Amino acid sequence: MAASSQSPDGQHARGLKKFRLFSPILAGATFKERLIGCIGALAGISVTGLVCGFLLGNDPYLPLIVAPMGASAVLLFAVPASPLAQPWSIVGGNTISALVGVSVAWLVAEPALAIGLAVSLAILAMSLTRSLHPPGGASALTAVIGGVAVARAGFWFPIVPVAVNSVLLVLIGMLFHRLSGRQYPHRPVPAPVNPHKTADPPPAMRAGFLPQDIDTALMRLNETLDISRDDIHALLREVEMQALLRQKGELLCSDIMSRDVVTARLDTTPQEARALLLEHDIRMLPVLDDEERLIGTVGLRELALGRDPDRLPLSPAATAQPGDPAIGLLPRLTDGRTHAMVVLDGDDRVVGIISQTDLLGTLARSLAQMRGGNHMLGSGQGI
């Protein structure tokens, strides 16, 4: 019998396929994240039930907590970045849907028709109010078939307990996520703007895909994704950067930085700093303290806006480490504000500087090598 020629990696991959049903289907899902979600759900549901029991006095005719809160907790604690898990989605979606369900139950006597109308109209109401929340469908359904307790509560049911449950759950979720180091409510990455206040897109956004390309791709896929358009844009930009780091990540800051750095001291006057900038034809000076440690930077812009003629107007420095991938500086050096990165050692002492020109020269050399060319561009501290 012939020996198998398949690699261990291939066998491992086939073995994993057998268990693909047990693999996370959400990007970024890890066991740690899921465990945090479990603990959050335990805290959220338990505390919501305790508080509602205290406030409502454990009324035997009024549910302590409605069943859709369990589904809301899954979204709130397991996928807190989802648009469907945000505060307005949870509170508005559950409350509005419960109100729709109560209204349908009051108007429609046929149960089979009422349950269908309640869920479908709840989806419509949540869509119109930008509060789409899957457990809202269960809230609408509960309002119709919830039994004597719900019928007795009538139009109070959407407020007590649904809205009260939802608000408490959201407040507990906000506190829990803050304590666990997560961001909630989710804040999409702000859309980049041109720092020069012109109509042109920022430099880094002028090449590659555009926002309208995302819209076209979504239309062609004909899918509704549980992620905002802005988050898709930010994710794809990060994917581009990670791919570039993988391809060119072996080039370090120490390989391309200028080592003979022109610096200023804390006691350097604005006039002396301006003279240094003009003499060396650079746009920024690192400013050092008496122990040779970096305390900030100064450039022509700061000098032009400075009010004290005897003190340097400092700005925070953009810094890197010698062992950082040089390509990783690309987002900062193309943001329209940062003209150079100061390279520091472990003691915050300046060991080099990388300007836009340095990085541009490096990229040009890489492109020339890829195309078989021999030309090279020089580098310098400033542009």
Rank of each mutant, 00 (worst) to 15 (best):
S4T: 13
Q6E: 14
Q11D: 14
L16W: 10
L16R: 15
K17H: 14
F22A: 13
S23K: 07
A29Q: 14
F31W: 15
K32V: 03
C38D: 07
A41L: 08
I45A: 05
V51P: 02
C52P: 02
G57I: 02
P60V: 07
S72M: 06
F77T: 04
V79A: 15
A85C: 08
W88D: 09
S89D: 04
G101H: 06
V102A: 03
V104A: 06
A114S: 11
A118D: 08
V119K: 03
T129G: 00
S131I: 02
L132K: 09
H133R: 06
G136H: 12
G137M: 09
S139Y: 06
L141D: 08
A149F: 00
A149W: 01
V150D: 04
R152V: 01
F155C: 00
W156K: 07
I159D: 02
I159W: 02
P161M: 04
N165R: 04
L168R: 10
V170F: 12
I172Q: 12
F176C: 07
G181L: 09
G181T: 09
H186L: 01
H186T: 04
R187I: 13
V193N: 05
N194M: 02
A207R: 08
A207W: 02
G208Q: 12
F209S: 03
D213T: 10
I214P: 02
N222E: 10
S228F: 02
D230K: 08
Q242C: 01
Q242S: 05
A243F: 00
L244H: 08
Q247R: 15
K248H: 15
G249K: 11
L252R: 15
R259T: 15
V261H: 06
V262T: 15
V262K: 10
T263Y: 02
D267E: 14
Q271D: 15
E272A: 13
A275K: 14
L278D: 15
E279W: 00
R283W: 00
L288M: 12
L288E: 12
D290C: 00
E291L: 07
E291F: 05
R293G: 05
L294E: 09
R301T: 09
A304T: 13
L305M: 11
G306W: 00
R307Q: 08
R311Q: 14
R311C: 08
L312N: 09
A318Y: 09
A320Q: 04
G323E: 15
A326G: 05
R337E: 13
A340R: 02
G346F: 00
G346P: 01
D347P: 00
T357W: 01
T357H: 08
T357M: 03
T362Q: 13
A364R: 01
L367T: 03
G380A: 14
G382L: 08
